[in-house]
Amino acid sequence: MTLHAALHVTRETFALDVDLTIEPGEVVALLGPNGAGKTTALRALAGLLVSDSTIRLGESTWDDLPAERRPIGVVFQDYLLFAHMTALDNVAFGLRARGTRKADANAVAARWLDQVGLAEFAGAKPRTLSGGQAQRVALARALATDPELLLLDEPLAALDASTRLRVRSELGRHLRDYPGHTLLVTHDPLDAMVLADRLVILENGRVVQHGTPREVVRQPRTDYVAHLVGLNFYRGTADGTEIHLDEGGALTVAEPVSGPVHVVFPPSAVSLYPEKPVGSPRNTWPATVAGIEQHAHTTRVELDGTPTVLADITTATVAELRLQPGDPLWVSLKATEIHTYPR
């Protein structure tokens, strides 16, 4: 059964208005910047805040149900494991609260701990667990009651980088096994891309884009999404192979198009020259260096010009050009590297 949710939450300075559908077995990621309303949406789904939302799953509606009567499981950002209980008691808590006998609840909880690879930590108190272990106990606790809807609130945010990689892939495995509906709230595009079947991008309480990770990565529709996926992004109006950008400047593309379009190209497609390059079918325009940022294997250069642009260049090029903020340069970009799609 598909889960339909129309979430409406009004606060003094903020309004959330989000429609979501989640299929059984599907993982939907709610991705957005801080303050976009992601956690508010999660809390509305969980019944942890008062809202005039409608949530429907098959025949049943959840609108009037308090949190404790909704068939949900939540993994909180900092897990919120009960400190005075053992890992086993934490996992068994939901079953006990729903009236399962202690022995049965413990048996189910032990099975879940085993499933997340923590069987030997059943008697451990949460403060003795590592971040990754605590996250797995939190996941087991949320799943032990067989919820219809699993809500994950930034489940990897509290982990350090190396743990994160491993826990992310494990989480992915458990989510694939889980037959219910999953909503993952995150501001990390990588978590969303790796774990989710579908992305819903939230900005200022509204959905600005949704689609599969592949669609979103290839065709971002807002500056935020373009920034997340690391693309140069412009709005423009096409006239054949010539595209006039809204912010000024023009680009030549390989395939003729028409009407209002989005224009994207990766920073790695941009080349920088000290002099105006001659004799090539390329887009070239003058720009000045506004900022330089060292990434793992490349250097990202932010350039002011018409239009402004991000360029990823090799460290060798940086050395060759002796880049300094304020330096004048020429930007060059092949027409075939530019991707356009209708607005």
Partner: peptide
Amino acid sequence: RFEEAAATLGA
């Protein structure tokens, strides 16, 4: 928030 966590677990 621990009380909220308990509520989501059905308590």
